[in-house]
């Protein structure tokens, strides 16, 4: 189940986000890491150190691209310059799938550089799905969309967030990057059961999972990616892995970034859940073989 058409039939384990403070450690010590996720926009440049570092990483590691500014939910026409640069990078990295967020962030050609939540309406479903299909056709690679954390809800919403996600991925025929930290953050901000969300997602479309830390404020939770993963998020992760099988998992740590080893240790905590899921899968396969 985890290797599916949305992650290019790969079977990746636990990865971590490639971040500048870790460049020299990785290049000098060459630690054993399953795979790295890069923020596409950091390497959509014409030359210089970012591309030199990326090429060195590509020589030794598997890399998956993750974007932050495609804004599938925007109503603007797709940005051709963005797509051209993204396609060049896809050729360079050979990423088996490409992820970006189920959100909007630009309008009338102006960019907020934020991952803004969608109103969950049918108009938004159709608009978003159409844009995902366009990008998928142009880049000729599986597209995977990530649920964002949010702090606001819209009066006009006609469905829950997970219903919206399901409708979009079905209509666009794309995969899901399930961010269980984002589900937890939004569940606390909007008072819903995060487990109901995880249980509602079509597991066969989940290509990858994100885990991360967050920060609690008096009246809301902020998705800060500056802490270790908290227990409620691990619990959700366990549930997601039970449903989806041992899926490629990535720890995001973007602020107050500790040493490489600390980040890697935190990410590898996911391994126990993945191993359990793999064992369960093997047991089920054996049972089926006996029954046949």
């Amino acid at each position: 189940m985890p290797a599916n058409r949305f992650n290019g039939y790969t079977d990746y384990g636990v990865g971590i986000g490639l971040r500048v403070p870790h460049y020299s450690h990785i290049l000098e010590k060459k630690p054993v890491v399953d795979w790295f996720e890069i923020i596409s926009e950091n390497y959509m440049v014409d030359g210089g150190r970012p591309l030199t570092v990326l090429d060195s990483i590509l020589d030794q590691y598997r890399v998956v691209q993750h974007g932050v500014s495609m804004y599938f939910g925007s109503t603007d026409p797709l940005n051709r310059e963005h797509l051209k640069r993204l396609k060049n990078l896809v050729r360079r990295t050979n990423t088996p799938w490409l992820s970006d967020h189920l959100c909007w962030g630009s309008v009338d050609g102006r960019y907020t550089h934020d991952l803004l939540p969608m109103p969950y309406t049918w108009e938004a479903v159709h608009n978003t799905a159409q844009r995902i299909r366009q990008v998928q056709d142009l880049l000729e690679i599986p597209i995977v969309v990530e649920n964002v954390s949010s702090y606001a809800e819209f009066h006009v919403s006609e469905m829950t967030e997970w219903e919206f996600l399901n409708e979009v991925v079905e209509e666009a025929d794309c995969g899901i990057l399930l961010d269980v930290n984002n589900i937890y953050v939004s569940s606390q901000n909007h008072t819903f059961d995060p487990r109901a969300y995880v249980d509602a997602v079509p597991s066969e479309r989940v290509a990858q999972i994100h885990i991360a830390g967050h920060s609690k404020f008096e009246k809301y939770i902020l998705d800060t990616h500056d802490h270790p993963v908290l227990d409620p998020v691990w619990n959700l992760y366990e549930r997601a892995i039970q449903r989806c099988g041992p899926t490629a998992t990535l720890l995001e740590w973007d602020d107050n970034i500790p040493t490489f080893d600390e980040v890697h240790r935190e990410a590898l905590k996911a391994t126990q859940y993945l191993q359990k899921a793999a064992q369960r899968l093997t047991a089920e396969e054996q049972k089926q073989a006996v029954a046949q």
């Binding site: 309008v107 108009e123 009066h155 006009v156």
Partner: peptide, 9 residues
């Protein structure tokens, strides 16, 4: 309440 996606954005 605006209902059109573009206007909301």
């Amino acid at each position: 309440h605006p209902t059109q996606l573009r206007e909301i954005q």
